[in-house]
């Protein structure tokens, strides 16, 4: 178990150079842990039998084979991809922040998470696309189910650097117009933007009948504000600096942050957006499990 945990520990990941290796490391570790892909969908053509494992949908148990052999087998079908996943990665300057307790910056963590999901999706012959953005869309990779497509996705992810000011609302509006095929939109961002604008953008995406999943990534320092000495906080994304006694402002800051997070969370829930708050010191498998486990119980992602 300890060995498994190290697979996803951000500290361990930080030591692995290259996003491809990191994604592989995560996915292989994850798959070997759960022994089952969460991305099995509907299929038409029978492919093969597989011995029943607890958790398998009973609808696919082949009762004829059971009658003959007294053993449970489930039928597996040739998949027909009907899922298109759009990975949207925030690459604004605030995403480049890495606190004193974290091993990865928010952006690095988001890249790992996005690459891992892309790896998983493509392994299941689904299609994955990618958009990186800050104040505007920096790059847009059209979705494809070709396994070689992963290389392109990883390349774009690796090229992304934290810079620029976030403008999630307009970006989401723009993307909602551009993404023609209905699919799943997966957002990786700290969402440090005006909540009204952000939620309006998400609403637009939902309006276009996309299923939306949001990973809000925050550094542990941002959530705990552990500073003690007099500190000058240098604002990213062209915001002012603050020179203050952190202890005096800690509770007030945390209250402001919690109010923001609550508003985002409630807004997402209202729009049936799947929302997950991710701490960048959290093992990635925990994040994946918390998101994918409910989907594994469903037939389809």
């Amino acid at each position: 178990m300890a060995q498994k945990t190290t697979y996803f520990d951000p500290e361990t990941l930080a030591k692995i150079q290259g996003l491809s290796l990191r994604a592989q490391h995560i996915v292989e570790g994850y798959i070997s842990g759960v022994h089952r892909s969460p991305f099995h969908g509907y299929s038409i053509e029978f492919a093969e039998h597989r011995e029943y494992a607890p958790g398998d949908d009973l609808r696919y148990v082949d009762w004829k084979v059971f009658g003959k052999t007294d053993k449970y087998y489930v039928k597996q079908y040739e998949e027909e991809t009907n899922l298109i996943a759009y990975l949207l990665l925030d690459t604004s300057e605030s995403m480049a922040y890495r606190g004193p307790q974290a091993s990865l910056s928010k952006l690095e963590y988001a890249k790992c998470l996005a690459a891992s999901l892309a790896y998983l999706i493509l392994q299941q012959q689904d299609s994955a696309g990618l958009a990186t953005f800050a104040g505007q869309i920096h790059s847009l990779v059209r979705p494809s189910g070709n396994p070689s497509h992963l290389k392109q996705l990883l390349h774009v992810l690796e090229q992304a650097t934290g810079a620029g000011k976030t403008a999630t609302g307009p970006i989401f509006h723009d993307l909602a117009e551009r993404l023609n095929k209905r699919g799943m939109v997966i957002v990786f961002s700290d969402l440090f933007d005006r909540p009204e604008s952000l939620l309006a953008g998400l609403k637009h995406l939902r309006h276009r009948r996309h299923e939306v999943m949001v990973f809000q990534l925050l550094d542990p320092a941002e959530l705990e504000f552990p500073f003690r000495q007099m500190t000058r906080f240098k604002g990213l994304e062209q915001l002012d600096d603050v020179l203050t006694d952190p202890q005096a402002l800690r509770e007030a800051y945390l209250n402001e942050l919690q109010a923001f997070l609550k508003r985002v969370k409630v807004g997402c829930r209202e729009q049936r957006v799947d929302y997950t708050l991710v701490r960048t010191d959290q093992p990635i498998d925990m994040v994946l499990t918390s998101v994918l486990a409910p989907r594994m119980s469903q037939a389809k992602l």
Partner: peptide, 11 residues
């Protein structure tokens, strides 16, 4: 001390 701070708006 100085530090960059992403959540500067809340601060």
């Amino acid at each position: 001390q100085e530090t960059e701070w992403a959540a500067i708006e809340f601060l």
